Amino acid sequence: MKKLIMIISIVLVCSCAFAKTPPDSVKKAFAKKFPTATKVSWGVEGPKEWEAEFTFEGSKISANFSDDGTWLETEREIKAVDLPKAVLESVKSKYSDWKIVEADKTETSKNGTIYEVDLKKGMKSKSLAFKENGMSIKE
């Protein structure tokens, strides 16, 4: 009987992963956090992590949840001018001749809010991450 239950569990988990349909715990947590989301599409982000891409309050957003429905992070693209002043100053001080091609605001359950900036200079590109106070956390 235990083997049968284990086999059924594995089949259910695999079928959800292949069908790109998250478990009910994830769908419920998502609906609670983003009740008015539209155009939702799901993908598998990792072995026990799901990512939803959707529109919420006029913005295109992605959010990640663990299999048990725990929210992990939310990422939204923002305009470069909407970056915190300290982040813009940090970027300009070290990369004044680079162009900001994309900026994202990521809220995480572990690290709080992080701002990611993608830069381009000719054929070179670089991705950076900062805390709101302009402190670099990834260069």
Rank of each mutant, 00 (worst) to 15 (best):
V91C: 05
D104A: 11
W71C: 07
I10P: 00
S15Q: 10
V101F: 03
W50Q: 08
A52V: 05
S96C: 02
G43S: 14
I114H: 06
L119N: 03
D104V: 06
G122M: 02
P22V: 07
S62N: 12
K32D: 15
P47K: 11
K105Y: 02
D118V: 00
K39Q: 09
D97H: 06
F34H: 05
V81K: 15
P35M: 05
K110M: 09
A129T: 04
V40T: 14
K94W: 01
W71F: 05
S96T: 09
K121P: 02
E49C: 08
E89T: 10
S41V: 08
G69I: 07
G43A: 12
V81L: 11
K27I: 09
V40S: 02
E132L: 04
V40G: 05
K20Q: 15
C14E: 10
S90D: 02
A103Y: 03
E139T: 10
K33A: 15
G46Q: 02
A52Y: 02
M123R: 13
K99N: 11
K94H: 09
L72I: 12
Y95T: 05
A103C: 05
V101S: 04
I137M: 08
P22R: 04
A37K: 04
K105N: 09
E89L: 12
V101R: 07
V81F: 09
K20I: 07
A103F: 03
T38L: 01
K121L: 06
S93P: 00
K85G: 04
F54C: 04
T108M: 06
F56V: 08
D24N: 11
G69P: 05
K92P: 00
S127Q: 11
L119P: 00
R76G: 11
K3S: 00
A129G: 05
E53A: 11
C14A: 14
